[in-house]
Write a protein that binds this DNA or RNA. Structure first.
Lengths: 198, 198
DNA sequence: CCTACCGATCGGTAGG
DNA sequence: CCTACCGATCGGTAGG
């Protein structure tokens, strides 16, 4: 319960802070320019240290990325569960989850912009671990979708995949101004809402 | 009408063939590993020439990518227009277009796998040209969606964007075997079909 | 966390 | 289309 990070070196308070700072800054860079397009030198520059110094905090670029990815998913899962729990109706629960997810994905100031997709820009050695973590995360949506009173000719597996794609890739086209995040969540749900009439 | 490529050097028949071969092979590599993850050396190796020789056929890696992108969109537009034109009902036309689009996006042997999204893996100098070309292509879907008898509280602009996202990113999750491309097109349309009842 | 550095790889070019 | 090469950049490390 101490919450100590699983680092491989002394983790006093200031070191943990610094580590967190590196995570947040590099998360933004990875989100903007992709894994390969983001160099350790660039990260170091924005953090305000020299390139080699990053390796005092992280073993490698890959482990830095995996760390961001895992933390982002954990935090996102927690926020979504909290938002869902305020509702009981299955459609309301789904909408709350989607709105929260969009809010996270579309907020550039967010600590958590994981590059949820386009894993082919990440070296193959780490994709296995990322996919496993992601599958675990998506169980939330599997449960949400399974609880829906959907029309019977809709494949729930495809339905879930399509919905998640929509949420995860929204940052690729969203532009501040025209529509709020919440209005977009509404429109997505508007399209995906196919209630069984019983 | 000669169909001669707009190259900057002699384009006899065999040179045009070679050029085409480079385009097809590099298109696949770009699709698999992203722009930055694909090196000119790797392309050259798969084509069967030495790295420097690629520059006999293309001015730069960027221009090679832009060329692939433009050709892919032109060919895709032509195929979609042909598929659409077999129908008159707006929903049938949309479904035909989507099925064709999916068929292209999900076919690994296809000459045209453009990496339609994730433009942030491409250097900024070329994204303007790519986005312009893409906007032009998407006019097809703008017309298709505008012709639909949609329920009135659905934003056609968002609707079009969401549908295109779905089609363009399908290769990120599709796995051969479980469902055919046509069944997926059906499921997507099943979700996006919200007819006005009038 | 800095200094100083390594080997590998990259896009690209001159000259034939 | 090959030979031979360039400068730049990359992830990472030793030693302090």
């Amino acid at each position: 319960m101490s919450g100590a990070p699983q680092t491989h070196h002394p983790h006093d308070a200031s070191s943990a802070e610094r580590r967190r700072e590196i995570l947040e800054i590099s998360a933004q860079l990875f989100a903007e320019r992709g894994y390969r397009g983001t160099s350790m030198r660039h990260i170091a520059e924005k953090v305000g240290m020299l390139p080699g110094s990053l390796y005092y905090h992280f073993r490698s670029k890959e482990s830095l990325f995996v760390d961001i990815h895992d933390r982002a998913l954990d935090e996102t899962a927690a926020r979504i569960e909290a938002a869902m729990s305020l509702h009981t109706d299955p459609w309301d629960r789904l909408e709350a989850a989607c709105a929260e997810m969009l809010d996270i994905q579309l907020n550039p100031a967010s600590l958590t912009l994981p590059i949820m997709n386009n894993l082919h820009s990440v070296p193959e050695e780490v994709t296995d671990a990322l996919v496993r973590k992601r599958d675990e995360f998506e169980l939330i949506f599997r449960r949400l979708v399974d609880a829906l009173p959907l029309e019977e000719d809709i494949d729930r597996s495809i339905y879930r995949i399509l919905l998640l794609r929509q949420l995860n890739t929204a940052d690729g086209w969203y532009r501040e101004g025209r529509l709020t995040r919440r209005e977009i969540a509404r429109q997505i749900l508007r399209i995906f809402r196919h209630a069984r009439t019983d």
